[in-house]
Design a protein around this nucleic acid. Structure first.
Length: 549
RNA sequence: GCGCCGGUAGCUCAGUGGAUAGAGCGUCGGCCUCCGGAGCCGAAGGUCGCAGGUUCGAAUCCUGUCCGGCGCGCCA
């Protein structure tokens, strides 16, 4: 199924071309023409789609928008799906879909099945989406929740638009954090207090209790670095626990990459060598610097410290090379908003390495302020006061949590009151959508041997509620396409609510199971298509679509 | 000081230069003899932080300003 919206756009473009060719429309001085845009009117009486093309053309053509709109309408050859083309002040061209055509789309929707809503905008794209990437020095906290959901939802939507997606988790296994973790565990083993700058959560004591004797021995045998072996063991244990927590969120990763591997496998040194050969590195004050200011950064950045050790940023550069070498056509990073200051240097490095800037996106996930009873909760792992993701899930469940985070744009800071979320979890709008799905399933069950049949839908489904619902079902592919393009997924919950509301109205106004066999079969087809659209929309959010609840 | 992100209904948030700015939750008032009442119908509720500007048209773009968050390391 091609998107009707695109067909209408093409038809309007043709109308414009035809008007120009006939001399009915002329651009003053050959000025460039604006692109044809199609939008959805806010009011139903304005039709199903509208274009502001005439108003955009008015300054270029130096004519009244209404005259241009009339000329467009005269030259428009509307597709069969369109039943009405009207012009409205101050110059809109409004398009109305044909009722029979709308209802006739139920058949193709059902035929597409699980594929309905999926698009081809990103066919052939291989996207790497890196998210969470929390260091394994403690359990995932509420602070990690938003990024985890946002990355997974974005991945699902990109896949819905045709892309192949690799979900990637990057973590640091090199730095002092691992050693610090080891020291904290060792302190508890020795019955001593954990150092002030160590890790204080209850999980550290659990690790100490589980520490195998051989790890402890190996650690004691290493006089130079006694905390290292314990730290490595502990961080691996935590990493496995993180994977388990993510699985409970229904977030799975395809690749886990460590900073250490980037160094060991030569990606960091190789990328730096490429920058050096291209003349982007220089020595100063004993260190090696990358001239990132040549690519728009505020200041140049050190890549090799004066002590010979590469910086964290150097690993970022190696990682860029590593990812592109793996054949990805696009990289997406989901970073906490507190990392926005590092975007410019990474973009500079990508450009210096010769990569197309448009092939990389950094999405900054805005802060979540977690509140309990009006008091903000600290999310610092070292304080030990944080709430873990597992605790959140045990209170409100993955469906409600996914809905909450999936309903908000990633750039918007949000307040999350845990007590409020628990109280509201039973009234979470996600259940409204799931309920509508379950009701559809129930009706289909009650139909017994009567099967959905969309073949006469065009003639039989002409009630306002039937038409409104069927029209909304047609929008799913547009919602998926727009979400993928914007790299924001919060339109999907909104769409799910709208479909559910229209279904409830249909359910109120139109009895499905009646003695009228053809009408029953046609309405069952509409119910089945609604169930399918809700299931597919919920699937894009990673939320279950129950047949009963 | 400079930079980034926010400020829209009581609360939490949508709103891609277009037509009378929306949703969920909350509040108030109605609706259960019928396919699932986790529902339906209605109502109240807005100086879109503020001030200028661009535009036929601004919540949206530009400038300034106020408030909140974050960032400005040879840390990660």
């Amino acid at each position: 199924m091609t998107l009707i919206r695109e067909a209408l756009r093409d038809a309007l473009q043709d109308a414009l071309d035809r008007g120009l060719e006939a001399g009915e429309l002329t651009a003053a001085g050959g000025a460039p023409l604006p692109p044809v845009s199609i939008e959805r009117p806010t009011r139903v009486e304005h039709g199903d789609y509208a274009s502001n093309l005439a108003m955009r053309l008015a300054p270029v053509m130096r004519r009244a928008p209404m005259q241009i709109a009339e000329a467009l309408r005269r030259n428009l050859v509307p597709p069969p799906a369109v039943s009405g083309v009207t012009v409205a002040a101050p110059g809109f061209v409004n398009l109305r879909l044909d009722d029979a055509w709308v209802a006739e789309q139920i058949g193709p929707i059902l035929a597409a099945g699980e594929r309905y809503g999926r698009g081809s905008d990103l066919d052939g794209h291989h996207v790497n989406v890196e998210f969470v990437s929390a260091n394994p020095t403690g359990p995932l906290t509420l602070g990690n929740a938003r990024g985890a959901f946002a990355g997974d939802l974005l991945s699902r939507v990109l896949e819905g638009a045709g892309a192949a997606v690799t979900r990637e988790y990057y973590f640091n296994d090199q730095g002092p954090q691992v050693r610090n973790l080891g020291r904290s565990v060792l302190a508890i083993v020795a019955g001593e207090p954990v150092p002030d700058d160590g890790y204080h959560g209850a999980y550290v004591a659990d690790l100490a209790a589980d520490l195998p004797e051989e790890v402890l021995q190996a650690s004691r045998a290493d006089d130079a670095d006694p905390a290292w072996a314990v730290g490595v063991w502990a961080s691996e244990r935590i990493r496995a626990a993180i994977e388990g927590s993510l699985a409970r969120l229904r977030v799975r990763f395809d690749a886990w990459t460590t900073e250490g591997s980037l160094h060991r496998d030569g990606w960091v040194s190789g990328a730096l060598e490429r920058l050096r050969e291209a003349g982007h590195l220089y020595q100063a004050e004993g260190a090696t610097w990358f001239r990132s200011t040549a690519f728009g950064d505020d200041k140049d950045r050190v890549v090799i410290r004066s002590n010979g050790q590469p910086t964290y940023f150097a690993a970022d550069i190696g990682y860029l090379a590593h990812k592109f070498n793996r054949g990805f056509t696009e990289l997406i990073y989901l970073w906490g908003a507190d990392h926005h200051g590092t975007v410019a240097r990474n973009r500079a490095a990508a450009e210096a390495l010769g990569h197309e800037p448009a092939s990389i996106h950094w999405l900054l996930i805005a802060w979540v302020r977690f509140v309990r009873d009006g008091r903000e909760i600290s999310m610092s792992k070292r304080s030990g006061e944080f709430v873990t993701l597992d605790e959140l899930l045990s209170e409100i469940g993955p469906d409600a949590a996914r809905w909450f985070f999936g309903s908000r744009a990633t750039s918007t800071g949000i307040d999350f009151d845990i007590e409020l979320a628990k109280r509201q979890s039973s009234e979470n709008p996600v259940y409204y959508v799931q309920y509508a799905h379950a009701r559809c399933a129930s009706i289909l069950r009650n139909a017994g041997t009567v099967r959905p049949d969309a073949r006469q839908a065009g003639e039989l489904l002409r009630q306002p509620a039937e038409q409104a619902l069927a029209r909304e079902l047609l929008r799913l592919p547009e919602v998926v396409s727009d979400s993928a393009q914007r790299r924001e997924t919060h339109d999907i919950p909104r769409y799910g609510l709208e479909v559910s509301a229209l279904f409830s109205q249909f359910y109120r106004d139109c009895r499905v199971l009646t003695d009228d066999a053809p009408l029953t079969a046609a309405r069952l087809a509409l119910v089945d298509a609604t169930r399918l659209v809700l299931a597919n929309a919920l699937g894009l959010l990673g939320i279950t679509a129950p047949s009963s609840m």
